[in-house]
Write a protein that binds this DNA or RNA. Structure first.
Length: 290
DNA sequence: AGGCAGGTTCTTA
DNA sequence: TAAGAACCTGCC
């Protein structure tokens, strides 16, 4: 099906924003017949593979805000529209930034224009961010992909025919032995993932029920999980629970705060959207340096 | 070859 | 309560 999106929406930036790890641009088809395909708008038309829990779509950029999605209208309305958070205006959120009083964030937001905070699944996010500690993004993606291949099932394929697997359920993940988890390059995080899977599969932890908790209570619950500290908990709150005021502080963000906001970041000015601002700062600092 | 990467836990004062 | 060390693994 085809859609048109007027608000901020940049697939490449979202894919590179560090909030999701199974959202990838498909490599341009090289090695094909030389020259014969050139008439199709050159190489401007990018395609992305997006996997979330047990769903997958391919999206092709058609330009001018138009996109071709490999799903039915019903799937789009019932799932993907919400996944991409299309009910919220990110241009309105950016408009809260005053170029005069906060020039650095303003520049960062112009640079990161198009980023949205996806409405991802708390379970997938919890495991993903537990894995993320002391890893770079390619390594995180590699680990998660191995996990999905090992304990998920085929849910589709990308443009180049590569199979895409579902994210493992708590039951399937908890059934894996520690050695099997280790084979996914989890390193010392294998025991964290195992424990989290056991907690959720057993029902001792009910991530869906936690949606009803107050912010402070939710944070407390998350910090009680083995392998979850303040940073991972904030990522879970922002990306897994879509509470847009959460502000995860990683090494990059801390550098930005130290250098650019020595007297403190103006959280009060941007509530309840500090998490969106964090994304702009993170994306910008990673690309441009601080 | 040694250091480091989107942290957290464990161990010491 | 607060620093410091240890931790898997892959990639410079």
């Amino acid at each position: 099906m085809r859609i048109k999106i007027e608000d901020d929406f940049d697939l490449k930036k979202i894919a590179d924003s560090g909030q999701c790890f199974r959202f990838n641009e498909c490599a341009a088809e090289i090695g094909g017949k030389s020259g014969t395909e050139e008439s199709f708008g050159g190489n401007d038309s990018r395609t992305f593979s997006v996997a979330a829990s047990d769903r997958h779509i391919n999206i092709r950029e058609l330009g001018d805000g138009n996109y071709d999605l490999s799903c039915s209208e019903e799937d789009f309305e019932s799932f993907w529209k919400n996944y991409f958070d299309l009910g919220l205006s990110y241009s309105d959120i950016r408009a809260k930034i005053d170029p005069e009083s906060d020039p650095y964030l303003y520049v960062a937001s112009e640079y990161g224009k198009g980023i949205r905070i996806l409405r991802q699944d708390p379970w997938e996010m919890l495991i993903s961010f537990i894995i993320s500690q002391r890893k770079n993004i390619p390594a995180i993606k590699a680990s998660i992909e191995k996990l999905c291949e090992r304990a998920g099932y085929v849910i589709g394929e990308d443009e180049s025919g590569r199979k895409i697997y579902s994210f493992p359920t708590p039951e399937r993940l908890s059934a894996l032995r520690l050695e099997e988890l280790s084979a996914c390059s989890l390193g010392y995080r294998d025991k964290y993932v195992h424990q989290a899977a056991m907690d959720v599969a057993s029902g001792a932890v009910d991530l869906e029920a936690w949606r009803e908790l107050e912010d402070a209570q939710l944070m407390e619950k998350l910090l009680g999980l083995f392998g979850v500290g303040v940073k991972v908990a904030n990522c879970e709150i922002l990306f897994g629970y879509h509470r847009l005021d959460a502000f995860p502080k990683d090494v990059w963000i801390n550098k930005v705060l130290d250098v650019r906001y020595p007297s403190g970041f103006p959280f009060d000015s941007y509530a309840p959207y500090n998490g969106v601002m964090q994304q702009y700062l993170f994306f910008f600092s990673r690309s441009e340096g601080v």
